[in-house]
Design a protein around this nucleic acid. Structure first.
Lengths: 184, 184
DNA sequence: ACCTGAACACCGTTCAAGT
DNA sequence: ACCTGAACACCGTTCAAGT
């Protein structure tokens, strides 16, 4: 009992801030991931975050980086299907992960690794690799969008599946890129 | 000179509100399209908007509808390339148009027409049509994202093209879906 | 039918100042 | 090196009340 309970220096660095942001993202979703809420979670004033990141955009870019880092370097023998699935899995690991990656894609901090993996699998065809990456991101974003809408209950009249046919749509896309490659 | 200059009833309906929102979107972009700013543009209090739409989301869904309505019904003889290009053109007509459509896609108010067009062009293959639509949306969103980042100047070190290779990436994607269809 | 006025509970960001 | 405190200029939304 030598220590009091509410005095803590509680210093952070970029790494711990990003880790907390990623956890918070998964808990509350992108619309509720605010700088003020993140600061509260870190037991710090909102302004403290601006010592570590120059803006919310830059912080989200670092979060996107971490989301895609799970893809890592893929074995050269990986199939197109496995490479694409690995990227999709990384995007779907955290709530709204695809939208975060999409919203910071222009700053291309973390997409390089994932796109290099696709490039290898598509025999060096840069345009096809970019197109496939755009398809994966579009697919993941729309899927997570629907998951959120469903959890809110704000969904169209028909609306049967939470993600029922989503896998077969993904496979149809992969089949297309696969077919295009084989007829060089 | 029989009329004063600052008394105007200025009553609106859903149509005129959406038209103004679309104009404002193109002028200032999605991040600056706020309910308060839209209200100012309409010379009305922000709360007045909530008589016409129950939330900002619903208003944006109506805007997305209008963006995609430009696609209309396509001739059955249209090629896959032309159908896809028509949808892409509609998304790129207004600043941040693709992101607006994407963010309200779960409510599927306006995507039906565009997707029906793709379905016809893909011989009724629903999964392939959905996948192609996801590719087009992903492509358009990332392109507009890059255009915005470039105008801000916040762009990666390499970053050569504003959209230089973007068309050839789009064609690579279309080529893939086209190839998959022909080998039924 | 359509809008005002006022309020509630929030935002991102800056900047001087502290330790 | 890392954070506080206070401020600035905003948000979306609700609701009683007006016409």
């Amino acid at each position: 009992m030598a220590e009091e309970r509410n005095e803590r220096p509680l210093r952070h660095d970029r790494h711990s801030v990003v880790a907390c942001a990623l956890r918070l993202l998964d808990d509350v979703g992108l619309p509720d991931l605010s700088m003020r809420r993140l600061a509260t979670e870190l037991e710090v004033q909102p302004s403290a975050l601006y010592w570590h990141f120059e803006s919310k955009q830059q912080l989200l870019a670092a979060v996107a980086d971490r989301i895609l880092s799970a893809v890592g370097e893929l074995d050269p023998s990986t199939t197109l299907e496995d490479a694409a699935q690995a990227i999709l899995d990384a995007l779907l690991t955290y709530r709204d992960g695809a939208e975060v990656v999409m919203s910071t894609y222009a700053l291309r901090l973390g997409a390089h690794g994932a796109q290099r993996a696709l490039l290898g699998v598509l025999d060096g065809d840069q345009s096809a690799a970019d197109a496939l990456f755009e398809f994966i991101l579009g697919h993941a974003t729309l899927l997570q969008q629907r998951m959120h809408a469903q959890s809110i209950g704000a969904v169209a009249a028909d609306a049967a599946d939470p993600a029922e046919h989503s896998d077969e749509v993904f496979q149809a896309g992969l089949h297309a890129f696969s077919a295009a490659r084989s007829r060089h």
